[in-house]
Simulated scan of single mutants.
Amino acid sequence: MKIAVVAANGRVAKKVIAEAVSRGLEVVAFGRHDENDTQAKVYHKKDILDLTKEDLAGFDVVVDGFGARTAEQQPMHVKTSQYLCDLLSGTDTRLLVVGGAGSLYVNQEHTAVLSDSPDFPAEFLPVARAQGEELAKLRERNDVKWTFISPAADFQADGERTGKYLLAGEQFTLNSRNESIISYADYAIAMVDEIESGKHIQQRISVVRA
């Protein structure tokens, strides 16, 4: 398989690249940094919004690792993923998006989401709402083979790579220890498993440590 990872210098993206490379997949990274600080053998310095259809032609999967750091940048979640959708529209290339936990449903009726909870951390509300809107816009795209993968609520950059995870869907899910936690490394395993299987096209899935 041939995979493109955009916003490749991000911490989650680098874990996904490392996992994919370890499985022998061909990875091409696109990032904003001058240097290639990923494990991809091929790296192109290119912003997402400068990518062209030709840049992404021939890939089986494109991974969108974009993540905004400030409140002012949050609208870029929708802008960048929709731009990638436009480039991939009508093709067989799948788009996998690194999502957030805030948009996971917390009731069976799917009318309330985690970010609506009174104890949801205020500092994470801007990104939760931005990625919730990103998911809503993806749901409108029937012309793209997208998959949005939400991590657990406690998404740990330096967490342990256990090699195991629970695959869930739209519902906020706890493991047997009543935890909603996953490391970047285990999230990357789930992402690459989905890259290889392609089982959840035009769906949002979620993952939590087993």
Rank of each mutant, 00 (worst) to 15 (best):
V98M: 11
A7D: 13
W146N: 03
I17Y: 12
Q171T: 15
V12R: 08
E26L: 15
K45G: 01
E170S: 11
D193E: 06
A153N: 08
T93R: 04
P151T: 05
V62L: 03
G99V: 11
G24H: 10
P118A: 04
E134H: 14
S206C: 06
E140P: 00
M191V: 13
E140Q: 14
I195N: 09
K137P: 01
E179V: 11
R94P: 04
A190S: 10
E72P: 01
Q202S: 11
V63T: 01
F66V: 02
G159W: 06
A20F: 08
T147V: 08
A18I: 14
Q202A: 06
V63F: 13
F155Y: 11
L166D: 08
F172E: 11
V12S: 11
V97M: 02
Y105R: 06
Y105F: 15
D64V: 02
Q171G: 04
G102S: 09
A185M: 04
V28H: 15
F124S: 14
V127H: 02
S150Q: 04
K45W: 00
D116A: 11
R94D: 00
D34W: 05
I189D: 14
G31F: 11
V127C: 04
A136S: 15
Q202D: 11
T80F: 09
L138G: 05
L25T: 04
I205K: 13
H200Q: 13
K79N: 04
S89W: 01
A128V: 14
A210D: 12
A210K: 04
M76N: 10
E160P: 03
P121I: 07
I3W: 02
E196R: 07
I182Y: 06
D119G: 02
A130Q: 06
E160I: 08
E26C: 14
D47N: 14
Q131L: 15
S115A: 11
L167G: 10
A130D: 03
T111K: 13
F30W: 07
L135Q: 03
V127G: 02
I205T: 11
H77K: 10
T91Y: 04
V113E: 07
E72D: 14
G24D: 09
A188T: 03
S180R: 12
D193Y: 05
Y184S: 09
D186I: 02
Q39K: 14
A13Q: 10
I182R: 12
V97A: 00
R94G: 01
L96D: 02
F172D: 08
L138K: 13
T173Y: 10
E19S: 09
I181E: 03
K79Y: 01
E35D: 13
P121M: 07
F120N: 05
Q39E: 12
F124P: 04
R139A: 02
G67S: 14
S22Q: 05
D92R: 03
R23K: 13
